[in-house]
Amino acid sequence: MSTQTRQMELEVMRYDPEKDDAPWFQTYSVPCMEDWVILDAINYVKDNLDTTLAYRWSCHMMVCGSCGMMVNGEPSLTCKTFIRELPDKVRIEPLENFPIERDLVVVLDDVMQKLHQVQPYIIRKDDPPAEDKEYIQSRGALAKFKQLTMCINCMCCYAACPQYALNKDFIGPAALALAHRYNRDNRDQGKSDRLDILADHDGVWDCSFVGACSEVCPKHVDPAAAIQQMKVDGAVEFWKQKMGIPGDKS
């Protein structure tokens, strides 16, 4: 273990809803170990320099998805953003495109509602199987959506998405990718139900394929790809409905 430390300047956005009219920056000088991630440096501030700093974190291992912040303008999971890849001066802000609750904590109510809206669960139209039966899924069928199950709802993609920034009605990357995960699941029969929401006005068509969501995703979920595939599905389904062909049930 290296004992070498590096002095870093952390410019942290502060906002106290009871006192401040607008956010402001406070600079902390932090002696960082070379193997630290940004979250370690923020924890150092909390433990040693300023107990009033508010931020979210839990697992410190890229699983819980709660420590997403803007690091030098880039939406990042701070537990996987190593300081050795950063300059001596780093600016930390709460995730863009979300209202600030306090300091680095953002209000996530909007995306929570959107995640719910896309019906992210298996929908069956037929009777459930008998007690001794189960829904069979081959490995090939799993591979069709496995990448999409990696999402940890860190919401870095929403912070990167300019279309969500410009229009809060847009369902947005993570929720759409999650919907696509169920659309592609061979056990699910709710694809046409979901398309009625997803292919409506504030669904997939508000995406202009900037691709920023996929670039910043710490889990390589690639929401941009999922959304384009849903556009193809939506366009095909539109003509199927026009021509009276029954919708895709699987």
């Binding site: 929401i197 292919a199 409506d200 006005h201 068509w205 939506g234 366009a235 539109f238 409905q241």
Partner: peptide, 15 residues
């Protein structure tokens, strides 16, 4: 049913 007409122009856009 609720699929927006944008589906049509998007199809033309993509092609």
């Amino acid at each position: 049913m609720a699929i927006a007409k944008k589906a049509v122009v998007w199809g033309l856009f993509a092609a």
